[in-house]
Amino acid sequence: MSGLSIENLSMRFDLPNGTSVQALKDVSLDIAEGEIMSVLGPSGCGKTTLLNIVAGFLAPTEGQVVLNGHRVTGPDAERGMVFQQGALFEWMDVRSNVSFGPRMAGKSEAQWGQNVDHLLDVVGLRDFKEKAVFELSGGMQQRVALARCLANEPDVILMDEPLGALDALTREKMQSLVLKLWKETGKTIILITHSVEEALLLGERLLVMAPRPGRIHKEYHLPFADLGVNADLREVKKHPEFAERREEILGMIWDMEEEIMGRAEATS
């Protein structure tokens, strides 16, 4: 079977001081091939933990992740990652960064050259191929990270707050780019974000998680990602349902944060 399924995932961190944190509890989820899903939730609700388990960096204490019929046991080229920042290789120029995956797979430039150059065109870095990555701005660096991930042709792309470190304007442009790449490549994408607007714009499906223990709180199916592929994102935001959903989700997260604060006060 194709697609990604997350089955009864639980994750407990045992801390050195004897206590433990239940970062995830019994999370189950099926994601179809080609779906784009955004994940929202207050800090510490286990979003990164969930993504790290899917990526294969962490083994869950219970449950499993199954991709295309086989169980995930470790990191693999079939699951690409885009990090918030700091994941590019400074000692390589832009093109070498983007072609890293194919090169590690032992492919020759004849095999990857065209695709890499095409991707560099798509993300608008055609003129920066030979540049060192540390000479690029934050937004350009994230575009390199996206292109690098796509050049490796993974089945699933996992993004942990990929646009979190960017300024608002760059962020908007990058959101369009993510949608464009999603449509063009048809990849399955899971995207974690702190921004409710971003989650609404980029999620065909939107997952709201709740903390302590980390779990799925609510799930939405939304039309905005499909709308945004062909329209200006600012137009999409004017959609009547958009504002309604935004207020609803903001309120939900606000309540969760309140609760966390209240609990923190009660224990201190």
Partner: peptide, 15 residues
């Protein structure tokens, strides 16, 4: 070495 670089390399299929 920043662990995200190592993670990124593993996810790109590096041995």
């Amino acid at each position: 070495v920043n662990i995200t670089k190592v993670h990124a390399a593993y996810s790109l299929g590096a041995s």
